[in-house]
Design a protein around this nucleic acid. Structure first.
Length: 277
DNA sequence: TTCCAGGCGTATC
DNA sequence: GATACGCATGGA
């Protein structure tokens, strides 16, 4: 074992096959099963928990033992260049949680699930996934995405779907969302929607750009900006967050959420869905 | 059987 | 701008 100090936020060490990380404010169950990502599955294990999933087409199995995380069959280079970023390990979640906890409702939500992080997911995967998510439930969203990956040999880039039509996508059983997916492929492939430009846009500008796609409205756009562009000031409001807003924030969000509304949203979303607020 | 799910497009006023 | 309704599918 060869311990290396990487920076203030986490330590890691490597051995022959694995990278072991010590880090706070990360819980795999809370982060991977809080409705932001749909391609992670928990495996039976001797650790506290083990999950397997993907970033793009790159697979990972990762285990948690309290504040230790074992990235199985992962090289140091792969960990640093991919997974440390994906799990947002360089962000100061202690400071984030402290700020949000100035509000009493958020304090309860953060304390209920202090290990939630906002993953840095792939933009195109988020776009497709959250188009599928509309008027749908999480188990079924996972099913449709899983069938898409089966059909395409991994989660497809949008460019790989250029020749797709309704018949090709019929095994997904995505219902009325199929035509939205096709419109997304069309507008992204043609450049009508400027995906790479969205990263440097404001949330309002990015929302307007994404709403050019049929099937993308306010909520889906905000999810894509938050989870696919890591714009923490994007605040998606679905049926659950509507309840949160009506019950706790009828006059708007508290000042402590300014600029990090999306992070606040994720703690609140998880808390209300699990009956903690 | 009916209701609901990380909504949105369309019609109508 | 606001409100009402339909929409594919499947689990509760």
């Amino acid at each position: 074992m060869n311990p290396i100090r990487y920076d203030a936020m986490f330590d890691y060490s490597t051995d022959k096959n694995d990278v072991t990380v010590r880090c706070d404010h990360l819980d795999l169950r809370q982060t991977l099963d809080c409705g932001q990502a749909f391609r992670w599955a928990e495996l039976p294990s001797d650790y506290d928990c083990t999950f397997t999933g993907f970033y793009k087409k790159k697979p990972l199995t990762v285990s948690q033992d309290k504040d230790r995380f074992i990235f199985h069959n992962t090289s140091e280079d792969e960990f640093l260049s991919c997974w440390a970023d994906y799990f947002d390990l360089n962000e100061d979640y202690a400071a984030l949680a402290a700020r949000l906890s100035e509000d009493s409702t958020l304090a309860a939500a953060v304390s209920f699930a202090p290990g939630i992080r906002i993953l840095r997911q792939d933009f195109e995967e988020c776009l497709i996934s959250f188009i599928i998510s509309q008027n749908n439930n999480i188990p079924r969203i996972k099913g449709i995405i899983s069938r898409l990956c089966e059909l395409c040999g991994g989660f497809p880039d949008i460019s790989e779907l250029r020749s797709a039509d309704e018949e090709f996508l019929s095994p997904l059983r995505a219902g009325f969302r199929t035509k939205y997916l096709l419109d997304c492929v069309e507008k992204v492939s043609s450049g009508d929607v400027d995906c790479s430009g969205i990263f440097s846009m404001s949330v309002d500008e990015g929302t307007a750009e994404l709403k050019k796609i049929k099937g993308v409205g306010e909520k889906v756009a905000k999810c894509v900006l938050l989870f696919g562009c890591h714009k923490l000031d994007a605040y998606p409001v679905d049926v659950w967050m509507k309840r949160v807003n009506e019950r706790f924030y009828p006059d708007g969000l508290p000042e402590c959420t300014r600029g990090i509304e999306g992070a606040a949203q994720q703690y609140l979303f998880y808390a209300i869905r699990n009956g903690a607020i």
